[in-house]
Design a protein around this nucleic acid. Structure first.
Lengths: 276, 276
DNA sequence: CAAATAGTGTCTCTAAGACAATATCAC
DNA sequence: GTGATATTGTCTTAGAGACACTATTTG
């Protein structure tokens, strides 16, 4: 009879075929757009980070940031490493989206991906200062169901003097698997690499689910914020409209008031709050 | 400049080190225990399938069923394959629990596990007929928080003439990671193999979350059921008590009544319902 | 008849949505 | 003052929990 020690010393891990394992990260940020009216508050947009692939396969296509899992790190650490390498920003939250392992999802071979979504504050991105590398850009996100039951994922990059506008429009359907879970299938990838349209769709759904609770919302905001800012973020993510009076009542138990107020907004100053 | 085709034909997937990938399945079943009083309905227990390991490492320890991912299958298919091999039963639901990739979690080397939980009906297990192999057994599950903030996972196998009683008691703590997710850490594995105490803890939490909605509850029941049966299952999983009148009101929209009734129960017959 | 579950009706409490009204700033 | 957001209060409605009451079966 072999002892455990003997067994392990002789164990050959190369006995079985192994897949490559990657992580992909859907990094979300709320971007505020300046308004033309000095009195009106800025509008918010939900945006996601995409990188333009410089190598085969899917060269020149836009994709989620990500990379291969290294020994001696967890998949969470790998996701954190990849997103930090890409943005120089340490995200506030990293949460799992799921595992994507369909054979054939990557033309290079047997590669399964662990997808995460992460939340990054606009504040932190501004501090780092946009490295103007055109290969990593924040795209505005819209994700809606149409009347036929199809889901439309639209990612758009607003052009400026240095950059053309880019619009990626993917179409997906929701299908119920035999075993209790619904998944998205890609009808049109919209030019996104691999199965990333699907991963983004799942990530947006999950973000919306999380954003119904306040913990995830606060992660998009700086330490001190007005209640209207929180409300705007939730409305942006969930694509809904809430009456301010009711929102205040709901959030009241989750925040602590400070003695500070906003200034120079063209209307009554608002008290700043901290998360509880 | 290389074309994508040329690139892929030269791509060497062995360039990077790769982990072995496994799935582990927390298979849950609601087991009804006969009562001594002919008038009283049977009590339910939440139970989970464990297998006794016949090989190193953790030989003779109890573990979740599972196995290595094969090429050309998804992790979900792998989980389904493993649980069906073990029980001869096709589960009604298979849902993801998470990825466990801490370095050192498996003494054989770099092995990451995709954990799932599955729901199996007692009906289907009875039909297959218990293969009396003592190496796969359904353990009753209890999972509770104590006053110190520790979590106690107790798995027990009721002994019978052929089998001794077995009690596995694991202790865990819940820790908030930096990035918005809470995880369980094992203080005492209770004799369970690998990090399976942790996987089971996460799976039970997730099952309880799902069981607040009725879809998962119905998966534990046969096609036709009484409302009291549904209530008992939910009470068993969530470890709560609900007033029958209120439960009926809540579930009313999720079921369709049939014209059939129970018989011989020692009390008023109950109408059978189907899920909507 | 006793004991158990089946099933109905109603009261209360809470949380959320709708809406009205007042407050305060920059221009 | 005007137009915007800030802030408070109240009415209504939907859903959950508590509880009382009736119905029906088997030993």
């Amino acid at each position: 009879m072999q002892s455990e020690k003997e067994y392990l010393s002789q164990y050959n891990i190369n006995k079985y075929e192994r897949p490559s394992v990657t992580t992909d990260i859907a990094a979300f940020m709320i971007r505020s757009e300046e308004s033309d009216n000095y009195k009106r508050d800025s509008e918010n947009r939900l945006s996601i980070l995409l990188v333009k692939r410089g190598v085969h396969p899917f060269m020149d296509c836009w994709a989620l940031p990500g990379g291969f899992l290294k020994p001696n790190e967890t998949v969470e650490e790998c996701a954190l490493r990849e997103i930090t390498e890409e943005t120089n920003v340490v995200p506030v939250a990293i949460l799992p989206v799921g595992v994507f392992s369909e054979p054939g999802r990557d033309p290079r071979g047997w590669i399964i991906s662990n997808a995460f979504f992460s939340v990054i504050t606009e504040e932190s991105v501004k501090q780092v200062g946009g490295d103007d590398a055109a290969d990593a850009q924040w795209f505005d996100v819209s994700f809606e169901k149409d009347n036929d039951g199809d889901y439309h994922l639209s990612l758009s990059l607003r052009g400026n003097t240095a950059l053309e506008s880019i619009h990626l429009d993917a179409v997906l359907t929701k299908e119920r698997t035999k075993f209790g879970k619904s998944i998205f299938l890609i009808k049109d990838s919209g030019g996104l690499a691999f199965d990333h349209a699907r991963i983004i769709a799942e990530a947006v759904c999950l973000l919306r689910k999380y954003a119904q609770d306040f913990n995830t919302i606060f992660d998009f905001l700086p330490e001190k914020f007005t209640l209207n800012e929180v409300q705007k973020v939730q409305e942006t993510i969930l694509d809904i409209s809430i009456l301010p009076a009711n929102f205040r009542r709901k959030i009241n138990d989750y925040v602590i008031e400070t003695d500070e107020y906003t200034q120079g907004a063209g209307h009554r100053p608002a008290r700043l709050f901290k998360r509880k």
